[in-house]
Structures are given as C-alpha cells and as structure tokens.
Nucleic acid binder design. Sequence first.
DNA 1: ACATTGGGTCAACCCTGTTGACGTAAGGCG
DNA 2: CGCCTTACGTCAACAGGGTTGACCCAATGT
Lengths: 230, 230
Amino acid sequence: MSTRVPQERRRRRPTRSGVLLSEDLIVETALRLIGEHGPEALSVRRLGAALGCDPTALYRYFHGTDDLVLAIADRIIGDAMAGFVPGADWVVSLREMALRVRAGYLAHPRAAAMAAHRVTGRKSEIQAVETGIGLLLSAGFEPAAAARLYLAFIDTVLSHAATDAAFLALPLQQRQADHRAWSNVYQDLDPVAYPALTAVRPALPGMADSSFEEAVDLLLEALAARAPTR
Amino acid sequence: MSTRVPQERRRRRPTRSGVLLSEDLIVETALRLIGEHGPEALSVRRLGAALGCDPTALYRYFHGTDDLVLAIADRIIGDAMAGFVPGADWVVSLREMALRVRAGYLAHPRAAAMAAHRVTGRKSEIQAVETGIGLLLSAGFEPAAAARLYLAFIDTVLSHAATDAAFLALPLQQRQADHRAWSNVYQDLDPVAYPALTAVRPALPGMADSSFEEAVDLLLEALAARAPTR
DNA sequence: ACATTGGGTCAACCCTGTTGACGTAAGGCG
DNA sequence: CGCCTTACGTCAACAGGGTTGACCCAATGT
C-alpha cells in the first residue's frame, strides 16, 4: 500500500460517523488531543477515535506517525509566524522572531515538547528560514556566515523554547518541586564548601525562571558585534 | 504488586543463565545496549535478553522504565563531570564545562533525551552550579548578574545538548529524513520566492550539523564583552 | 532444620504502529 | 444517464512495547 499521500484529494467521502477528513482537521484534532490529555494521548488509534474514523484512515493523509508530528510542528511554526513582517532593524526583527517562536511553543507546550527538535521541511519552516537568513544577509554577513550564524541563532531559540515548553508540560507537582529545589536545597549549603553559591544566595530563587530573553539578548549582542555593517 | 525496590538486596540468586543481577549491572548493560545497537535498542524486553534474565526481573530493581532512565541519567552526569577542575581562564573553563556536558549527553543520547529537562537538585548538579557561578564571580560580575548570566549560559548549553541528543535519539530513518530535508527540499526552491535561501544554497547541506560550538562561542563572546575585568 | 520471603520466571493483558486486502461510492467520461 | 476507474474509508492481523499478578524455588535468619 506504500502510503502514497497525494496533495489534491477529490474523492473524499464522509467517514462512518459522518466527518469529512482533511489534513488540517487531523492536525487540529491532534493538537487538541495533546493539549487536553498530554503528549502520550497522541496515538493513531486515539486520534482515529477522536476524529470518528478508522485509525488507519490517517495513513491516507500521512506516511506515518513521524509525518504527522512534522505536520504538527509546522503548524505551530506557521501560527507563530503568521503576520510577521521583518522591519528595518535586523537585530530587532530577529528578536521578535525569537519571541514569536517561543510564544508559539508555549501556546502548545506538550505538542512542542515532542516536535521541537525536528526539521519539518515544510512550508512554514521554509518561510521562517528564508526570513531569518535574509535578515542576516541584510546585516552584511557573507552567505556562508549568514547560514551558519542563523543556524546557531535559531537552534538556540528553538532549544530554549523547547526547554521552557517541556517545563510547562510537566505536571504541576513536579514544577513546584523544581521551584522548591532552588528555594530550599540551594539555601542551606555549607558556606565553606560552596562559597560562590553562598555569595549569590539572594539571587537563587529566581533561578527557576526562564533565561530565554537573557540568552537571546546575549546572542544578538554577539551577532551585532560580529556584523560587518550596522 | 507495587514494585517496591529495596535498597539492600541479600537474597539475590543467579538467573536462569547464571548472571547475578545488580542495579549497576543493569544500568551498565543498558548503556552498552544503547551504545552498540542504537538508541531504539533500549526496551525492557531487549534489556532482559541482553542480561540473560526474564524482562520482568528488572521490575525488582526499578519501578518502571522512567525510574531506570533516571538512574541512567544520574550515571551520565557523574561520568561527564568526573575529574573536572576549573582553570585560570574563566572563558576557557566555561567552554570546557559546556563541551563536557554535551559530550556526556551525546554519549547516551536516548537516556539524555528523556531526562534532559529535569532538575535533579543532587550533588553533581550543585557542584556544577557552584563551579560555574564561581567562574563568573572571578570574572568580576556582581553576584546578581553572575547568577542570572550563569543561568542563561547553562540553560543554553543544556538545551542545545538536549536538542543534539534528541536528534541522535531518533530512529535512523528519521535522522536521515532530516538530513534529506536540508539536501533536497531546500535545494529545489523558487529563486524568486526565496532569494535569501537561494543566495546561501551551497551552505545549506551543513544545516543538519550541530551549531552547538558556534552558539557557545557567541555566548562566551557576549559574556566576555560584558565582563568588568579581563 | 525450619519458616520466611526476596526475587527470578511465566503467562497474560492491553497498548502501540503498520500492513494488505477489501469494498464502496465519488467523479470523469462516453 | 450510466458505466469504470480508483481514491479512500474500513477491517483483520501482526509484531513489538510496558506492566501486572501468580507461582515457586532457594537463600537467609533463627
């Protein structure tokens, strides 16, 4: 059966329960499933049940689970970047890209946690890469450097966003436990054995907060310092 | 059956094939399995087969897969930071910390991918934080800044390492698909619609490689630029 | 030597992704 | 209008996964 997935579908007919399937509907239902019942709620069988169709009908739309995950990831990217237009200042524009991507991930933390590390090779991702590399080219970087630095930038943004999303995807209990670790464990340390931690102790409770913006700003500072033109 | 896991075991007896089980032996065998036959080789059943025991015997030692993974992760952290002593140059030392953490993760990608986003609050982690913040204090940063910047640094390192590990943890097929995405999809784009991508096209196949070191170097450049003292 | 019980084994359950065969109805075409 | 093709929804089946409860033997403390 080789699971060919044609792009135009003319012959679709309602499922047993009357639903008209479509790639968009499947992706949206998957996002809803994950958002409501956690990442482990996403399985071909459960998705089929939620859609009111036979699980294997999904193979007419996606080559397999992996293909579906990539579609979900691309959807998140697309939603996050919708309506974004780069401005005159490339540093400001890259910063907004970073914040948008992170916001998109945080909007679907559980889906992001499973899709964040993939290369979708789909429409929304291609558009985002085009935009980002274009910004670095406009900053005067050589093509090879622009590609390399964009990769470092976007990987950092995506990795950080994935970490934040993964944290949000944790059960409330474990999240609180992480906060408590910084508040309790790190407050009761032997000053002799841990002089540095003792010196910065008042700042430690904030360690549970995200460092996303600080990291992005540091990275953009370094990029600006390396840029041929301002 | 509640899978109680006692700490002292006095009554163990050899398995059917003559092996004496132990927590250490199980963790080591799991790491060996992953190293030899790829990340997807780790399953309770396969691990049992590799140990020459019934798969369910492992439940006498770990509450479940998750518990086993945490035990593995603990071992990885300890191994990665073993013997590390910070040197005189704080930039060089932070860089080595970053590389060590990443190397530890990459050595056991699947375990790292499953446990990367958790806060252990244990001895090794505390020691690492102490070392890192101490390095930033020695660079002349104020305590509050040192804590904040260390967090940005280590979060970036851990996130990136987790991303790289997650990629290695993918089944071979999906990894190759990611490579192909950069080699194929991004090579056949409309030059009018995607001018930036067209301009950097020769550099695109390298996009599948890790940007870890580039990102760390950029971050360290920014930190050095902000440091009160050289 | 005996009673206790830790721990290795086995069978079973329900989950998962994926496949190949099957049939029905939708759409193109005469 | 009605036939023919075939897209696509359905079904049954397979291999593999984690996990559980019952079983029972032997290692240990007395």
